[in-house]
């Protein structure tokens, strides 16, 4: 079983476009969307939900006003600025550490489980699909990602599947690290803009840090050929193979609007470019 995770550093470079195309190409796979706070892969797969589970990611502090004597110790100790001037919990800043509860001499604070999202196992025309929805403005996305990846792995083992194909989140922080855990290959999708190049550089620092073999795809490769060359040179220096270049194409936009993987779209060039990438990554 091989686990392939698509990441990018910079958002909007084409992760989901590419992963959904792999979904249409690959045989014997389970799909998983690790971008749990702004997930998009479901839009391309038209999933039928088979199972839904609630996800409690952590706890939040609650102050019992009947017991509170307004001493302000909790506010002084909280390192997240989560206790307001009038001694209320700002639930958006509370990290659920429980320091306030431990410190309160009047037992006025209790920690309550916090429903931070839900996750699903679905069927799709391209195979089983595990995905999630973090409730907006919630935390613990790393834990939720770890949970759905475990589910995808269980399905892959149960059904004897060859691939786990994971769509990753942007950035290089906790959700990306959770997505990369256990990956056999990280596929980094970049674009020939200074921002895309800068962010790819940071993304490769993460894959190197976790010693995950990575490969690069340059999307919209023709919008700045000089920058595309610079990316190729930078990758060669790092010993990272550039396994594909996808030109800018309105055909991809049309596919996304029609919610179909671009590999099934109307451009032969795009089809060929993506097929070659899939051949090389297998």
């Amino acid at each position: 079983m091989k686990q392939i995770v698509v990441i990018s550093g910079k958002g909007g470079t084409g992760k989901t476009m590419l992963l959904s195309s792999f979904a249409a190409l690959a045989k014997n796979k389970v799909l998983v969307d690790c971008d749990v706070d702004a997930s998009n892969l479901h839009l391309m797969l038209d999933p039928k939900r088979l199972k839904k589970e609630l996800f409690f990611g952590g706890k939040k502090a609650h102050i019992n006003k009947n017991k509170c004597v307004s001493c302000g110790l909790c506010k002084k100790l909280c390192r997240y600025g989560a206790i307001t001037e009038d001694l209320k919990i700002d639930e958006f800043l509370c990290e659920g550490c429980g320091f306030c509860k431990e410190a309160c001499e009047y037992s006025a604070i209790e920690m309550k489980d916090n429903l931070s999202g839900e996750w699903y196992v679905s069927s799709s025309k391209y195979g089983p699909f595990v995905h999630a929805r973090l409730r907006p403005a919630e935390e613990s996305s790393g834990k939720l990602i770890a949970r759905i990846k475990q589910e995808a792995k269980d399905i892959a083992i149960r059904d004897g599947l060859d691939y786990i194909l994971a769509d990753g989140p942007p950035g290089i922080g906790c959700p990306v690290m959770a997505s990369l855990t256990g990956a056999d290959t990280a596929l980094i999708v970049t674009e020939p803009t200074l921002s895309g190049m800068h962010d790819m550089e940071r993304a490769t620092e993460i894959t190197e840090h976790f010693k995950i073999p990575s490969k690069v795809v340059i999307n919209k490769s023709d919008i700045n050929p000089d920058n595309t060359k610079s990316i190729e040179a930078a990758c060669e220096k790092k010993g990272i193979e550039v396994i594909g270049r996808i030109p800018f194409s309105e055909s991809i936009v049309r596919s996304l609007v029609a919610r179909t993987p671009p590999i099934l779209g109307d451009s032969a060039d795009i089809k060929q470019a993506i097929c070659e990438i899939w051949e090389k990554i297998q």
Binding site: V36, D37, A38, A137, E139, P170, G173, L256, V257
Partner: peptide, 25 residues
């Protein structure tokens, strides 16, 4: 990007937020 803890940390306390998006699904 996103809508989770980092996004919240960044926009918390703002008087206004400009959301930038594009007309795709």
């Amino acid at each position: 990007p996103g809508t989770s803890c980092q996004f919240v940390s960044a926009v918390h306390g703002s008087d206004y937020c400009i959301l930038v998006s594009e007309p795709t699904p």
